[in-house]
Nucleic acid binder design. Structure first.
Length: 483
RNA sequence: CGGGGUAUGGCGCAGUCUGGUAGCGCAUCUGCUUUGGGAGCAGAGGGUCGUAGGUUCGAAUCCUGCUACCCCGACCA
């Protein structure tokens, strides 16, 4: 009673981080593996997080003049064959549709029939399709800039999958912008990665390192790739969003040409940028603890859960009415609130809200009702934050409490970055660091990565270049292990 | 794709070595008592052992192929 006997999630983070990650997803009811190889079922609670990501981010990109559209899932094979470097990056992981019907064979088994003249590829990304459309939509400099985004699914036949972090099918947004000049496309690619950084930090409470990818980590066919890299609790990096300046590489293969003011034909300069359901994996690995998920209020499907404590049936109506009034007060403050009316014990409901990471829990029984109060507990602090306050006071300060939780999660996440990002004097020091079982990231001078000693260390310790942080103007590179 | 592991009710597992046709915990359902950090008792339902084939009088168990999942690595905008 006095002390927590065990954690809700076993194993704990320190015992077995990958296993803990899977268990958090199950315990919080976000998603599960499906019968389809490498594909997940995103359950309602997990999908609600994605819907919030969509709603919030969609507003931000529309403010930049981006318009949403929808393009086909299936891409004609000849589209893909047109851009060599790009397709090299994806050919190994493309699912291909080769038939258009099923027939019953002699063993009464359904087999593919009706072979297609030209196979289709299930989109791994849509540069080629959208490029083809843009080649028809863009004729004049007056048509530029053109900014098109789609929220959709894509498929990449990955060798090794993990829920949210890398699945064969995943949900994302892919933005595709076209401009008249190289300066504009580079500015745009940087603008979008900056939007990702702001979204990650202000909404998801995930601090990120924003920077540019090195040449060998760059998107196939891009001139430059900008990225936000987040740091997980185990010290590994997670690429959480990328924005590419494609220059004229794609407009040349898709023939996106416009006439400039002088009547001369020119290739458009394009960008593409995306974030995906992978962000949910990042949320889990940054914020959750050994009792389960912990969600920043800004993204939580519900920010407050109310647990009615009904000890005898005669009180039920009165308590429900009391709860309903509080609910309405919170909704009027634009707070997302959920009343757990499930026929279950109070203890189970409390644990359920902890495992699901609801930021703020409210308990209301006869005791509170008689005194015009309620009891509330913060998920980030736990039972030590248990407070009894009047309904009026709570309703008027709930937004502040949620804001405080948002801040405390962000601060905690910043401490994770600080603990897992080191500088070293030279490559010998780097080697010693990882030999001593260091799990985090290291910032080294960019010139080091050409060194043979570095290349050998990178191989030995599975290190890769995460990015050249904007903050260091390209002089430094952050390296480490990544998801 | 390489190495290792796993596959048995919804979930987690035992049973496999020493073949004889399935068991435990949790969850579920019913009833009663309970409910403020994971309730108790009593009763009930639910699987034919990933899949295809082989050996055998008989296969969860032995043999072979296939598939999926997990971990490590390679790969991965």
């Amino acid at each position: 009673m006095s002390k927590k006997a065990k954690t809700a999630i076993q194993p704990t983070r320190s015992e077995d981080f990958p296993n803990w990650y899977q268990k958090v997803i199950v315990a919080s009811d976000l998603a599960e593996n499906s019968k389809t190889r490498g594909c997940m079922i995103i359950k309602p609670y997990g999908y609600a997080i994605w819907e919030n990501i969509q709603q919030i981010f969609d507003k931000r990109i529309k403010a930049h003049g981006v318009e949403n559209a929808y393009f086909p899932l299936l891409i004609p094979l000849k589209f893909i064959a047109s851009e060599a470097e790009h397709i090299d990056g994806f050919a190994k992981e493309c699912a291909v549709v080769t038939h258009h019907k099923l027939e019953m064979d002699e063993n009464r088994q359904l087999v593919p029939a009706g072979k297609l003249e030209e196979p289709y590829v299930i989109r791994p990304t849509s540069e080629t399709v959208i490029g083809d459309a843009m080649s028809r939509w863009i004729n004049s400099y007056r048509d530029l800039p053109m900014k098109i985004n789609q929220w959709c699914n894509v498929m990449r036949w990955e060798m090794r999958t993990r829920l949210f972090l890398r699945t064969s099918e995943f949900l994302w947004q892919e933005g595709h912008n076209a401009f008249a000049s190289p300066e504009e496309s580079d500015t745009d690619a940087r603008l979008m990665v900056d939007e990702y950084a702001k979204f990650a930090e202000n909404v998801l409470a995930i601090p990120v390192i924003t920077g540019e990818k090195t040449a060998n980590e760059r998107f196939p066919g891009a001139e430059s790739t900008y990225t936000i890299e987040a740091v997980m609790q185990d010290g590994k990096a997670l690429q959480a969003g990328t924005s590419h300046n494609l220059g004229t590489n794609f407009s040349k293969s898709a023939n996106i040409v416009f006439q400039d003011k002088t009547g001369k034909e020119q290739f458009a300069h394009t960008t593409s940028w995306g974030i995906s359901t992978r962000l949910i994996g990042g949320l889990i690995m940054v914020h959750s603890d050994d009792d389960g998920l912990q969600l920043p209020p800004a993204i939580a499907p519900y920010q407050v859960v109310i647990i009615p404590v009904v000890k005898n049936p005669e009180q039920a109506d009165a308590i429900n009415e009391y709860v309903q009034n509080i609910c309405e007060g919170l909704i009027a403050q634009d707070i997302r609130v959920h009343v757990n009316k499930k026929d279950d014990s109070v203890g189970n409901k409390i644990w359920d809200s902890i495992k699901k990471g609801v930021p703020l829990r409210v308990e209301i029984g006869a005791k509170e009702m008689e005194s015009g109060t309620l009891t509330h507990v913060r998920r980030d602090i736990g039972r030590d934050s248990k407070t009894n306050s009047s309904v009026e006071e709570f309703v008027s300060t709930a937004s502040d409490i949620l804001a405080s939780i948002q801040t405390s999660l962000f601060e905690r996440a910043k401490a994770i970055v600080a603990d897992n990002l080191s500088d070293v004097a030279d490559l010998d020091a780097l080697q010693q660091l990882y030999k001593d079982d260091y799990q985090g990231l290291v910032r080294i001078p960019t010139s080091f990565i050409e060194d043979d000693q570095y290349k050998q260390l990178a191989k030995e310790f599975s290190l890769s270049e995460r990015c050249l942080p904007f903050a260091d103007n390209g002089s430094m590179v952050v390296i480490g292990r990544a998801y």
